[in-house]
Simulated scan of single mutants.
Amino acid sequence: MKHFSLWCLVSLIVFTGKLAADDQAYSGQNLLQSGVDVLGQPLVYPEGTPRITSDIITLAPGEAGKPHIHQIPMFAYVLSGSISVDYGEHGVRTFNAGEALLEAQNVVHFGFNPGSEPVSLLVVYIGSEDLPNASLP
């Protein structure tokens, strides 16, 4: 059941969108469709045995994550609150509830909650068994 639920989630993320009426398998709201990350860099799929991981990450007001890097594509959807992400020389960007993004690959960054309420994100790592979802620099 856990694998089926994950398959449904990934299918929803990948295939959700407005399709031509003749091709429409179901209706939905497109959250994101892109081949580049938030910094405009092309996505790079990892070599090796595929592994999809999904998490819900929550940061309390004022909380910050550790600087890290993703060598794999990562989709995120802000469920509630606002999160700011510091990309170093690429600047700081803020994402609010209802926004979707493809996180930066191969760029050290960290997220922090500048608000007065918790922020929660659904994240989906599109990785492989050979690479971690995130690494500390």
Rank of each mutant, 00 (worst) to 15 (best):
M1Q: 10
M1L: 12
M1E: 09
M1K: 13
K2G: 15
H3C: 15
F4I: 15
S5N: 11
L6T: 14
C8L: 14
C8S: 14
L9T: 03
L9G: 01
L9Y: 00
L12H: 15
L12Q: 10
I13S: 01
I13L: 12
G17C: 01
G17K: 05
K18M: 08
A21G: 07
D22R: 09
Q24D: 09
A25N: 12
Y26G: 12
S27L: 09
S27P: 07
S27E: 11
G28M: 04
N30L: 15
L32V: 00
Q33K: 10
S34V: 00
G35S: 12
G35W: 08
V36W: 09
V36T: 13
V38M: 07
P42V: 01
P42S: 04
Y45P: 06
Y45V: 07
P46S: 10
P46K: 09
G48F: 08
P50R: 11
P50I: 05
R51C: 14
R51H: 14
I52Q: 11
I52F: 12
I52G: 03
S54H: 13
I57A: 11
T58Y: 11
P61R: 06
P61K: 08
G62F: 06
E63C: 07
G65A: 13
K66W: 06
P67A: 04
H68M: 02
I69G: 01
I69N: 03
I69D: 04
H70A: 01
H70K: 00
Q71A: 08
Q71H: 13
M74V: 15
M74I: 09
F75Q: 02
Y77A: 03
V78K: 01
L79I: 15
S82Y: 06
I83Q: 03
V85I: 13
V85F: 05
D86A: 03
Y87F: 15
Y87V: 07
Y87R: 09
Y87G: 12
Y87W: 11
G88I: 06
H90D: 09
H90T: 02
H90E: 03
V92Q: 12
V92E: 12
F95M: 00
A100V: 06
A100K: 01
L101H: 01
L102P: 11
L102V: 07
A104F: 00
A104V: 03
A104D: 00
V107L: 02
V108M: 15
V108K: 11
V108Q: 15
V108G: 08
H109P: 06
G111Q: 04
G111N: 05
F112H: 07
N113T: 00
P114T: 03
P114F: 08
G115S: 09
S116M: 07
V119W: 01
V119Y: 02
S120Q: 08
L122Q: 09
V123L: 10
V123F: 06
V124Y: 00
V124P: 00
Y125P: 00
Y125W: 06
I126V: 11
I126A: 07
S128C: 02
S128N: 06
L131M: 12
P132W: 05
N133C: 14
A134E: 12
L136Y: 15
L136G: 08
L136K: 10
P137K: 12
